[in-house]
Simulated scan of single mutants.
Amino acid sequence: MIKKPLILITNDDGINAPGIRTLISIMKPLGDIIVVAPDSPQSGMGHAITLDATLYAEEHKFNHATHREYSCSGTPADCVKLAIRQLADRKPDLCVSGINHGSNSSINVIYSGTMSAAIEAGIEGIPAIGFSLLNYKWNADFGACKEYVKIITENVLTHGLPDGVVLNVNIPDIQKHEIKGVKICRQARANWVEEFDKRINPQGKDYYWLTGKFVNLDEGDDTDEWALANNYVSVVPVQFDLTAHHYIDNLKRWNFKV
């Protein structure tokens, strides 16, 4: 008997978020699933892990589901670590994270809890995908992206991914018939120009509220930002090796003698 792949499902918006409920429904026909997700929203947590607090995991039964679901008191990366080391019966064959409420294209991948969960799985040698829809609303319509999430997942299950590579998938917030297809892209050179709005609370103490705008500095037509602006699903292979390999030889020519 051929064993179905075990698919670990997680996110950063919390176990009750509509995005992860949609992702669960897409994954059910593709394999056995286990869900381990934060018990509350963890957006923007990046790759934070819990070191100085107790971690809790509570099992849930949603609509009499036959698969196992756990809410975790920690971060998205904690969820993946706990799933692999404690909660799953065997090592997952795939990890899918999302579907995130909002973009994780370009520089957002650095801050994303969604992508950090996928990257944590990649560190453990598990093929992983982070899915995001460009709609921040809690009641976002995920209907248009279902078939793209399914076919990208099926391709990863069929072809696998190289060690150290994780897929970052972003889906434009448009109707299904408006999506032109899938583009394999590079990460755009874009960033947030941030400001801090200084305010005073009723007790007279200063506090700061982060504001800013997103600026795309990249004019290339091979980037995730271009793809999304032109109604394509963007797929970017990312890696967690942050070494600037192209600069190693330059550094070797520096004088480090003391």
Rank of each mutant, 00 (worst) to 15 (best):
Gln175Arg: 14
Asp173Thr: 00
Asp78Trp: 03
Lys205Thr: 07
Trp226Gln: 00
Lys180Tyr: 12
Leu6Ile: 04
Thr22Met: 10
Ile152Leu: 06
Asn108Leu: 10
Phe131Asp: 02
Trp192Pro: 05
Asp12Asn: 02
Tyr148Arg: 02
Ile2Trp: 03
Ile15Gly: 11
Ile129Phe: 02
Ile9Thr: 09
Ile184Gln: 14
Ile107Asn: 07
Phe214Asp: 08
Ile179Glu: 02
Asp222Leu: 12
Pro41Ala: 10
Ser97Ala: 07
Ser106Cys: 06
Ser132Asp: 01
Tyr207Pro: 11
Val80Asp: 09
Gly74Thr: 06
Thr50Val: 06
Asn135Ser: 03
Thr158Trp: 00
Ser97Asn: 05
Lys198Pro: 02
Ile110Ala: 12
Ser106Asn: 14
Glu178Ser: 02
Ile171Leu: 14
Arg90Asn: 06
Lys137Tyr: 01
Tyr232Thr: 01
Ser103Cys: 05
Val149Ile: 11
Glu194His: 02
Ala65Cys: 12
Gly204Trp: 14
Tyr148Ala: 04
Lys205Leu: 10
Pro18Glu: 08
Asn170Cys: 10
Asp39Ser: 09
Cys185Glu: 04
Val182Ile: 11
Pro237Tyr: 11
Thr158Pro: 01
Asp224Thr: 06
Pro127Met: 08
Gly212Asn: 07
Arg21Met: 10
Lys28Ile: 06
Gln175Trp: 07
Met115Gly: 04
Met1Lys: 13
Tyr70Glu: 05
Leu228Lys: 01
Lys183Met: 10
Val109His: 00
Trp254His: 12
Glu59Pro: 05
Arg189Gly: 03
Asn168Gln: 05
Ala190Gln: 08
Asn11Glu: 08
Asn191Met: 11
Lys91Cys: 05
Val233Gly: 00
Ala118Pro: 01
Val36Cys: 09
Asp218Gly: 02
Ile99Glu: 02
Gly160Leu: 00
Pro76Met: 07
Val80Thr: 03
Thr10Leu: 11
Leu87Gln: 10
Gly220Val: 06
Asp224Ile: 06
Pro38Val: 04
Thr50Asn: 07
Asp173Phe: 00
Val236Asn: 13
His67Gly: 04
Met1Gly: 10
Arg253Leu: 08
Met27Trp: 02
Ala117Met: 06
Trp226His: 11
His101Ala: 15
Asp32Glu: 14
Ala65Ser: 11
Ala227Asp: 00
Gln42Arg: 15
Asp222Pro: 03
Ala37Leu: 04
Val233Cys: 03
Val35Tyr: 14
Ala83Trp: 14
Lys213Pro: 02
Ser73Lys: 09
Ser112Phe: 03
Ile99Met: 04
Phe62Glu: 12
Lys91Tyr: 04
Val36Thr: 05
Cys95Ile: 05
Thr10Ser: 11
Leu6Ser: 04
Thr158Val: 06
Val35Lys: 15
His177Val: 00
Ile33Gly: 10
Thr153Ala: 08
Asp13Ser: 09
Thr50Arg: 03
Lys180Ser: 01
Asn191Val: 05
Lys146His: 13
Asn155Arg: 15
Lys176Gln: 07
Gly143Ser: 15
Asp206Thr: 07
Val96His: 01
Met45Tyr: 15
Thr114Asn: 15
Ile33Trp: 07
Ile119Ser: 04
Pro5Asn: 13
Asn231Ala: 08
Glu58Ala: 08
Asp93Met: 03
Pro172Trp: 12
Gly204Phe: 14
Ile129Ala: 10
Glu120Arg: 13
Asp221Asn: 13
Asp89Tyr: 08
Pro29His: 09
